[in-house]
């Protein structure tokens, strides 16, 4: 089925009270299900027939939006982790200002803290522009390899 026809079909069905529509012929099978606030379109083609890509492109986002919603909430925050075992320092020296406070917007490549192990100081940088949501370790606290140091929101 051509994309303009599929679009017309979806439009036609959404204008009715039909909640489920299924159509099958020799070349393809089309299933459209509707809930109160969402459309659900499933499209399958036998392997022998090349699946028309635009149709798959149309169908996928519709199906995805229903599934993806809870995941978006989980992905809202990311973490900056320690690449080494050591001591976490929020400032370059005890008298200095902190590198980044809660609420600060940091650019990609900006230093957010130091982790020291055996007199080797590792400047931990933000790998992307982000906002500091929470600082997960106390200043001068020991940190483990891979341990989250900051909860951040990617901007």
């Amino acid at each position: 089925m051509e994309i303009k026809n599929l679009r017309a079909l979806v439009k036609m069905i959404t204008e009715t009270d039909i909640t489920e529509f299924e159509m099958e012929n020799a070349e393809e099978k089309i299933l459209i299900k509707r809930g109160p606030d969402k459309e659900y379109v499933q499209f399958a083609a036998p392997v022998a027939t090349a699946a028309p890509a635009p149709v798959a492109g149309l169908a996928a986002p519709v199906a995805a939006s229903a599934d993806a919603e809870p995941a978006v909430v989980d992905d809202k925050y990311e973490t900056i982790n320690s690449p080494i075992v050591g001591s976490f320092y929020r400032k370059p020296s005890p008298e200095a200002d902190t590198f980044a406070d809660v609420g600060a917007i940091v650019e990609a490549g900006q230093t957010v803290c130091l982790v020291e192990a055996m007199k080797l100081f590792n400047e931990i940088e933000a790998e992307f522009k982000c906002k500091i949501i929470e600082i997960l370790k106390q200043d001068a606290a020991p940190v483990e390899f891979g341990e989250p140091l900051f909860k951040v929101e990617r901007l």
Partner: peptide
């Protein structure tokens, strides 16, 4: 006195 510094990503050392 010795003081070392490192620039790295999670899985790669840029330099020490």
């Amino acid at each position: 006195g010795l003081l070392n510094e490192m620039s790295s990503e999670t899985d790669q050392v840029h330099y020490v």
